[in-house]
Design a protein around this nucleic acid. Structure first.
Lengths: 182, 182
DNA sequence: TGTAGCATGTAAGCCGTTACATGATTGA
DNA sequence: TCAATCATGTAACGGCTTACATGCTACA
């Protein structure tokens, strides 16, 4: 039985504590920036701390120490609730907030050149994102074997890389179509 | 000079009023559900009304009528501010909230069968999303020529369809990898 | 010695959702 | 006549961000 219904981000952060170590709030934020941010959110520092407080109050997480250097680890109850949440609650469909697509939709409001410049800028941004994710993926090498702790993070990182490549290819094609339509 | 900095969703709704017609709040919500929802958000009914009120107060939208059947149209100032927003404000990178990827990341917490079932469920959900978007795309046929009003919406719909197909293909591959790893 | 990163929070406020309330119109 | 849909809001609240505050540690 789960104690409480928490927002997904709570479970996401809780989940980042299931990889065998215990972290400070600051380190947890770093881990979120390396993983969650690609397909969930990069919560603000202040939110990481407030979520940790809530998770602690609910007994899903235990704190060790006081003040600077305090670390947090997941409890047995936390592990149980997390597994329950993963198995029993509806998954929901992905939500995409895509400002480039939004502005392309409204392309008739500006010059075609503006739209084109925006799409090209997006291609640059995509390239940067790819190299950031590629670094993350590389950092998992060695622990991504079948039994390895980071097998699933590696699967997700591969997913992300393919996803970004698909986006790049689609946007490149859109550039051609917009150029052709001018 | 733009009057005010508004949230993106405001401009998104404002943008839906640039297609040559004037709409009631209810109709605007329907249009958002058919277009915005695939790559931005489907704002709640109540938000559509409150955004329309705000846009009216800022003079970006003009209301015609009172009470039931009140319609809204974009003003000249609204058109100007929207174009300014599109050209001058930073676009920002897409934000993806992907509960399936999140749960795959934490796959080591549950049975492989649970993960597999989740991925298969996602493939079903994707198929439904594709057919919904395909209908939208079809409804644009005829007005999607180069000069047509719905050329850009059609471009975005095509983007969405390719995007969903890429996702389907990636998830299908993940299913194979998860099966193989059991 | 000064700056960048490490580290931990509080407070205010906006965006957006859910729940609630109300009533007209249409069609089975 | 009943239900579904059309239609328009208000109120409460939660999630999350930004801004602000504070101080330590490492290193150039």
């Amino acid at each position: 039985m789960p104690r409480q219904d928490l927002p997904v981000t709570s479970y996401a952060l809780l989940g980042l504590l299931t990889f065998g170590d215990e972290l400070t709030g600051y380190e947890l934020k770093q881990r979120a920036d390396m993983t969650l941010r690609f397909y969930w959110v990069a919560p603000a520092m202040s939110q990481v701390y407030s979520e940790l407080r809530r998770l602690t109050e609910h007994g899903l997480v235990a704190r060790r120490g006081e003040g600077r250097g305090t670390t947090y680890r997941i409890t047995e109850g936390g592990r149980r609730d997390l597994a329950h949440w993963m198995r029993e609650t509806p998954v929901g469909f992905p939500v995409l907030k895509h400002p480039v697509a939004l502005r392309l939709l409204l392309g008739h409001v500006v010059d075609p050149d503006d739209t084109l410049a925006m799409l090209l800028g997006h291609l640059d941004a995509l390239a940067e994102e790819v190299s950031a994710l590629r670094e993350v993926r590389e950092s998992l090498r060695g622990a991504d074997q079948n039994g390895g702790v980071f097998r699933h993070p590696a699967l997700v990182a591969d997913w992300g890389l393919e996803y970004l490549e698909a986006e790049r290819s689609i946007v490149a094609e859109l550039v051609r179509r917009v150029e052709a339509g001018e």
